[in-house]
């Protein structure tokens, strides 16, 4: 039994990492009022960039940096389109996704030419903690990106709730006109959050291509970015609850794989539905306070309206 639980928990922790990076970044940009539906596309480009740079330079660290930079650039483009050009955010996100989906496959064709594998980021033991029986090897024997992803949750919470920058983000997301009249530079704040969200989405891609799966293929993310967007809504724009949502989704997924391996006799296509069904059901039945969307979410800012 212990082995089973250990297996499910470690599976869940592995699966949760890309969602966490992407969803925490998206939380920041949504808190400032920008919905970025192009997350999956940015993840794909990030995954490609990390893999390509990793395999050509031999440095995985450079790969992660490249993924962050590429993601940041795409986040900046999204910010330009949705903040400066005031485009419909949902639609520009989908357009960005379509563009990145095609671009990443084309880059794959032209520079990699076929599926290749890489020796990815290795697990790092946290001295002392990794020796704890049962829990130690699960929680403290992971690659660096897993630790960073989890560390992001309290950091994002702190930034959003305890810093002047976080106050600005929330002000801009709740009432940009009031924020503007108080001297907050609404567009600049949104540029910052959406670009940062892009950086995280890029690294989310890297966590797939050079840490979890150690390869790049067209459509490697298979829609993970969209799930990450959904998790932000699940979390009600609060990092800790985003983490809980991501853990719930990943754990149910790990459970259903385990159930299939055990051969429980239910159609696999039905068990595969479970993560999606349970996420909705839990959210619908959960008691939630303060989970109203940022008032200005998806609304472009314009002075004097």
């Amino acid at each position: 039994m212990t082995a089973v639980i250990v297996g499910i928990v470690s599976s869940s922790l592995r699966l949760v990492t890309p969602y966490l990076f992407a969803a925490i970044g998206e939380t920041l940009s949504q808190a400032s009022g920008v919905l970025n539906l192009g997350l999956d596309g940015i993840m794909l480009i990030g995954a490609y960039a990390a893999f390509y740079v990793g395999i050509t330079t031999g440095s995985l660290a450079l790969g992660v940096i490249a993924a962050g930079l590429a993601g940041g650039l795409l986040g900046f483009i999204m910010a330009f389109v949705s903040v400066s050009m005031r485009a419909d955010q949902g639609v520009s996100g989908i357009a960005l996704y379509l563009f990145c989906l095609g671009l990443s496959e084309m880059l794959f064709n032209q520079t990699l030419g076929g599926v290749r594998t890489i020796s990815g980021l290795q697990p790092i033991n946290i001295p002392g903690l990794s020796k704890i029986p049962v829990l130690g090897p699960i929680l403290f024997h992971q690659n660096i990106l897993v630790y960073i992803a989890f560390a992001l949750v309290p950091i994002a919470w702190f930034v959003l709730n305890k810093t002047p920058f976080g106050l600005k983000i929330r002000a801009v997301g709740e009432n940009p006109h009031a924020a503007d009249s108080l001297g907050v530079r609404v567009r600049r704040v949104r540029y910052q959050t959406v670009t940062l969200g892009g950086v995280f989405a890029g690294i989310a891609g890297a966590s797939l291509s050079i840490a979890l799966l150690n390869l790049f293929q067209p459509n490697l993310t298979n829609g993970m970015g969209f799930i990450a967007v959904a998790l932000v809504y699940f979390g009600g724009w609060r990092p800790v609850r985003v983490l809980l949502g991501a853990l719930l989704f990943s754990t149910v997924n790990a459970l259903q794989i385990w159930a299939q391996v055990e051969g429980i006799g239910i159609s696999p296509y039905l068990t595969l539905m479970l993560p999606y069904v349970i996420t909705i059901v839990v959210l619908a039945t959960m008691k939630r306070r303060n989970s109203q969307a940022p008032s200005a979410l998806t609304k472009p800012f314009e002075r004097g309206q």
């Binding site: 297996g7 470690s10 599976s11 890309p18 979890l212 390869l215 459509n219 298979n222 997924n253 299939q260």
Partner: peptide, 12 residues
């Protein structure tokens, strides 16, 4: 195309 799921299935 779900590489992540295939990978987790292998892990399990």
């Amino acid at each position: 195309s779900d590489s992540a799921l295939a990978s987790e299935a292998a892990q399990t």
